[in-house]
């Protein structure tokens, strides 16, 4: 008997990509380790600037740098975990055999995986961005604390977890994935509330009290994370989990030191990922803003590098046998 065709069978490839993406995202988000890593990232972003600024008497820059660094560091772990746990685990456990026994092409399947990991990272970035903005407010300025921010930041995290617990109790939704959604909502709400008040809790024109200029720098970090996730996914096609992590770590370190290590080898230097271009904290010093040109150039670099990584991954995956 023929399978009843979907009314929009011309759109089937997109539906299949989105189905695989949804499958990847749901399975990754529901795994408790994703929530644990994200919560640790939020805790570090919010707490560390307080301690550092208090000890060294510096503010602003350290809070900003640490927010970006923690977003990147934990994002790398999440990207590596998401890529490794989804594709590699599916190959090793045999889930992939069941999936590929359905009428989905390998190219579409791989594309769906990239989109799914992108969605997971997007959710993480949506948590990290408001956490970074809150970190600017919770770090003391001239040893004076922002009482309202110190109340709102932890309350946002606690409320998110309480909301997820309630959601789990009432509708039996996965606690881990629900907590991530609640974190996005409560942390963003915290930023929106603080945007109306100065550090001494007096009302100010809306938006003035938040360093919105941090967001473009955070988005560039998000692009780097997407590249790293896609790189791990390409490695996961052929390598076992431990080898994926080792390979990804080599690429990561290589990318951090590209200019120093490969400066005299233009060809190799061109092929290695330049993580440095995604780190634009210096441009924000002394009240500076990221220029549109920089954002455009870095984003173009990310798009081309991403396209290359996806192409390599698809070529590897097309010929991969499911032993």
């Amino acid at each position: 008997m023929e399978v009843p065709a979907s009314p929009s069978s011309a759109l089937r490839p997109f539906v299949q990509i989105l189905t695989i993406a949804r499958l990847t995202a749901l399975e990754t988000l529901r795994h408790p380790i994703f929530l644990l890593l994200s919560l640790t990232a939020v805790a570090c972003i919010l707490v560390v600037p307080i301690a550092i600024a208090h000890e060294l008497g510096e503010q602003g820059r350290l809070a900003r740098d640490s927010a970006l660094a923690f977003q990147f560091g934990f994002g790398v772990l999440i990207a590596g975990y998401a890529a490794g746990s989804s594709l590699r685990r599916e190959i090793e456990t045999g889930i992939l055999s069941t999936l590929l026994s359905k009428n989905i092409g390998r190219e579409l399947f791989y594309g769906g995986k990239v989109v799914g990991i992108g969605a997971v990272l997007a959710l993480y970035v949506l948590v990290a961005i408001p956490a970074g903005l809150l970190a600017q407010r919770v770090s003391p300025l001239n040893y004076e604390v922002d009482t309202l921010a110190l109340l709102i930041a932890p309350a946002a995290v606690v409320l998110a977890l309480a909301g997820a617990a309630l959601d789990n109790f009432i509708s039996r939704r996965s606690f881990a994935s629900s907590a991530m959604i609640h974190l996005v909502i409560t942390l963003s709400a915290g930023v929106l509330i603080l945007a109306a008040f100065s550090r001494d809790s007096t009302p100010v024109p809306y938006g003035q009290a938040i360093e919105w200029r941090l967001i473009p720098a955070q988005l560039l970090i998000a692009e780097a994370l997407l590249l790293f996730g896609t790189l791990c996914l390409a490695l996961a096609v052929r390598l076992k989990t431990a080898a994926v992590l080792a390979g990804a770590a080599i690429f990561f370190l290589l990318g951090l030191a590209t200019d120093y290590l490969l400066g005299t080898f233009p060809l190799l230097r061109g092929w290695a990922p330049h993580w440095q271009v995604f780190w634009q904290s210096d441009a924000l010093a002394a009240g500076g803003h990221l220029s549109g040109d920089v954002i455009e150039q870095v984003s173009l670099y990310a798009i081309f590098y991403l396209a290359g990584l996806i192409a390599v991954g698809i070529v590897l995956f097309r010929h991969q046998e499911m032993e």
């Binding site: 399978v3 539906v15 299949q16 189905t19 949804r22 749901l26 045999g94 889930i95 055999s97 359905k102």
Partner: peptide, 30 residues
């Protein structure tokens, strides 16, 4: 074709309902 593998290779965090619906989407069922 329908294929039932040797081991029950399933996504552990998905429910039976979600699992079957997602497979149905992959198969292009309306």
């Amino acid at each position: 074709i329908g294929y039932m593998p040797e081991e029950s290779y399933l996504y552990p965090y998905l429910s039976p309902d979600e699992t079957l619906r997602l497979y149905g989407q992959l198969l292009g069922l309306s």
